[in-house]
Amino acid sequence: MNIKKMKPTELIMHVLTWGAAILTICALIYLIGFILLKGLPYLKPSLFSLTYNSDNVSLMPALISTVFMTFLSLLIAAPLGIGAAIYLAEYVRREGRFVTFVRMMSETLAGIPSIVYGLFGMLFFVNALRWGYSLIAGAFTLSIMILPLLMRSTEEALKSVPDVWREGSFGLGAGKLRTVFKVVLPAASPGILAGIILAVGRVVGETAALIFTSGTVAQVPSSALKSARTLSVHMYVLSGEGLHMGEGYATAVVLLVVVVAINALSASLAKKIGAGDK
């Protein structure tokens, strides 16, 4: 493009958009550089010992709790979310009143700030059900939080499966159940998986909803009814205490690696879906 030949308004737009892009990239680089610079020096082996004490400030229990938390939340939310999406996409009239209603509900749920989920989780799971601050209370709270996301992505994945495959299956005398489970779901599975990975990202990054539900105990929980902190909560607590800022940044580095890995996974899956569309 020849800058000299541009009209002044075009030139201004050009500079503005270019500047915005540069600014975004700079902010990102600054953020990551800052975390790495502050965190990397503290990334010591002792940070990965199995038990936490105030000397080693180990993040290992939090890492393990994060894995537990992720699995538990998914175990609760995935069957529900995927099941509900199958029902909405395959069994009821598309764009019917019921579907519109449920979709509106789930979109509303998706827009609620996570602290509200935390409060609800505390009142209901922690207090009313008397589970106390526990892994399971946190997992139930998070599963409600990621339910709309899972439902939405699964529904989209199912809707992107061409109807001609359903027709082909029915045309061979297959019933609804067989068509859904043997033809539609396998074809939609990359999209569903991508949704699950997004949900994992939400769980890994969540703090507000967890502080009031699964608590902040820094050890590996011995049961699902014990309190535990995930990496994000761990980081939040460390920076709140202000005594171990370096270790806090080191935790951020680990969290960053986890998030980048999850994103890479979802990107490669998205690519696969795109390839399957041809």
Partner: peptide
């Protein structure tokens, strides 16, 4: 389903399953 087993159908656009 039995009817559709007895009366097979081939569609306008080829629609092999993704298998």
């Amino acid at each position: 389903n039995l009817l559709r087993k007895r009366v097979g159908m081939v569609f306008q656009k080829p629609n092999p399953f993704p298998m």
